[in-house]
Simulated scan of single mutants.
Amino acid sequence: MSEGSESAEPVLVTLSTPPRRSLVDGLVRNIGASPAAPTLELDAPDTGIADFLAHVAHSDTGFVARTSSGERALAIVAATAAALCGEDIGAALRAPDIAFLTSLKPPAVEAVRSVLRAIETEAADRVNAALRVLNGG
């Protein structure tokens, strides 16, 4: 070895799988506590919500949903996934497919969470209770 050369020694690096992000953990927030993004009121008609989701699912902005209904909160998670997958958004709003949602792989969960940034509500306990079914996957 020539003078000034350094020997290359192996460096041990611990590799671990990053924790899987939940579809709903941290999703529910108080009104006004979310990142700046378009807001969608979930008491709007399903056709208006479907039109909004068809557009926002392919934008860079994402959106914040607002509701006090646990049922509508669950529906918007399902409808957001449907919009991203090219599925029937209206059907997802009417009858969320819990088995499908809980089987989403990490890249799909990230996609949903990058579009649905938050659900703002004044009824956090009710909304969180309804969304709890999505933590079973």
Results as ranks from 00 to 15, higher is better:
Ala54Pro: 02
Arg66Val: 05
Ser59Gln: 10
Asp51Lys: 09
Asn30Gln: 15
Arg72Pro: 00
Ile31His: 08
Gly62Gln: 05
Val24Ala: 00
Glu71Gln: 10
Asp60Asn: 10
Ala79Ile: 02
Arg66Cys: 04
Val77Gly: 11
Ala73Lys: 05
Leu23Ser: 08
Arg72Val: 00
Asp60Thr: 15
Asp43Val: 04
Val77Trp: 09
Leu23Gly: 08
Ile49Ala: 11
His58Pro: 02
Ser68Leu: 06
Ala33Lys: 12
Leu42Gln: 02
Asp25Glu: 14
Leu23Cys: 09
Gly48Gln: 13
His58Ile: 02
Arg66Lys: 09
Pro38Lys: 01
Pro45Met: 07
Ile49Glu: 12
Val28Gly: 04
Leu40Cys: 12
Pro45Asn: 11
Ala65Tyr: 05
Leu40Arg: 15
Ile49Thr: 14
Arg29Pro: 00
Ala79Asn: 03
Leu42Asn: 02
Asp51Pro: 00
Gly70Ser: 03
Arg72Cys: 01
Gly26Ile: 10
Ala36Phe: 03
Leu42His: 02
Ser34Met: 04
Asn30His: 12
Ala79His: 01
Asp46Leu: 02
Phe63Asn: 06
Ser69Trp: 01
His58Leu: 07
Gly70Ile: 00
Glu71Leu: 01
Val24Arg: 00
Arg72Ala: 11
Ala50Ser: 15
Arg66Phe: 01
Gly70Cys: 01
Asp43Ile: 05
Ala78Ile: 13
Ile31Trp: 13
Leu53Ala: 09
Val28Phe: 12
Ile31Lys: 14
Glu71Arg: 07
Arg29Lys: 15
Ser59His: 05
Pro45Thr: 09
Pro35Phe: 01
Val56Tyr: 07
Ala33His: 08
Leu42Phe: 03
Leu74Asp: 01
Leu40Ile: 06
Val24Gln: 02
Thr39Ser: 15
Arg72Trp: 01
Asp43Ala: 04
Ala57Tyr: 07
Ala79Val: 03
Ala44Thr: 05
Pro45Glu: 14
Asp43Cys: 04
Ser34Asn: 04
Gly62His: 04
Ser22His: 13
Ala75Pro: 14
Asp25Gly: 02
Ser34Glu: 11
Ala36Leu: 13
Asn30Cys: 03
Ala73Thr: 07
Thr47Gly: 03
Thr67Ser: 15
Ala78Ser: 14
Ala37Pro: 03
Asp46Arg: 06
Gly26Asn: 10
Ser34Ala: 15
Ala78Asp: 09
Gly48Tyr: 04
Ala57Glu: 08
Leu40Lys: 12
Ile31Tyr: 13
Arg21Ser: 08
Thr47Lys: 07
Gly32Glu: 06
Glu41Phe: 06
Ala79Cys: 04
Thr67Gly: 04
Val28Thr: 04
Ala44Cys: 10
Arg29Trp: 04
Ala75His: 10
Ser69Thr: 01
Phe52Thr: 06
Leu42Pro: 01
Ala57Arg: 11
Leu74Phe: 02
Gly70Asp: 01
Gly70Leu: 00
Arg20Ala: 08
Ala44Leu: 09
Val28Asp: 05
Thr67Ile: 05
Asp51Cys: 03
His58Tyr: 09
Arg21Thr: 11
Ala75Asp: 13
Ala65Gln: 05
Asp43Ser: 09
His55Met: 08
Phe63Thr: 04
Ser68His: 06
